[in-house]
Amino acid sequence: MHHTLFFHGESLHLRPTGALHWPARNLLVVSDLHLGKSERLARRGGSLLPPYETQATLEKLDRDLDTTRASSVICLGDSFDDTASADGIDDHSRLWLARLMAGRDWTWIAGNHDPGPIEIGGTHRDEVALGPFTFRHIADPRETAEVSGHYHPKARLAGQSRPCFLADAKRLILPAYGVYTGGLRSHEPVLTTLMAKDALAILTGPRALAIPMPR
């Protein structure tokens, strides 16, 4: 079950998967997919990780799109683990992604891992303004009504650490949606200085659970 967040006059659904759904615009927002991470590590002569994370992430996205019937999608950056990963993505995943994109208004926002344009269709932007919101990869401390990703926030509840959304009056930060992604504890100074004292952490998992942001 999702958590409903009222943010600058809009009702946003924070889904237990880590996706953001904005019903009024029928928009789904996901961040930090890091597709192609295992391939990138192998290419660099490192570990041969199970090469299934792209498939697993796309499956998850497929389900979210199916449930929400979203007509547009914004990927908030670091969608690919590097620009070469976007080219290295296998045919099966490429077709799958194309199927998900078909008939949808799809925007790729540039991240620090995938700064350049990607040969994969859709619109490519540094940031997007929509309604009251600005969507970008990395939060800008001076901004307000901002939706971003990048930090992979996570928080602990009842002994378990989970990826989470962080929200205060000014900004909303999304958890990493990709399967092979680590996390940054909400205690870390970079997050405690960025977020207001009364910020919430909305944990992903079987259901979205809101708690005061642990700091």
Binding site: L49, P50, H152, V179, Y180, T181, G182, G183, L184
Partner: peptide, 9 residues
């Protein structure tokens, strides 16, 4: 940012 855990693998 920490490396992701082996649990995910």
């Amino acid at each position: 940012q920490a490396t992701f855990s082996s649990d995910i693998l």
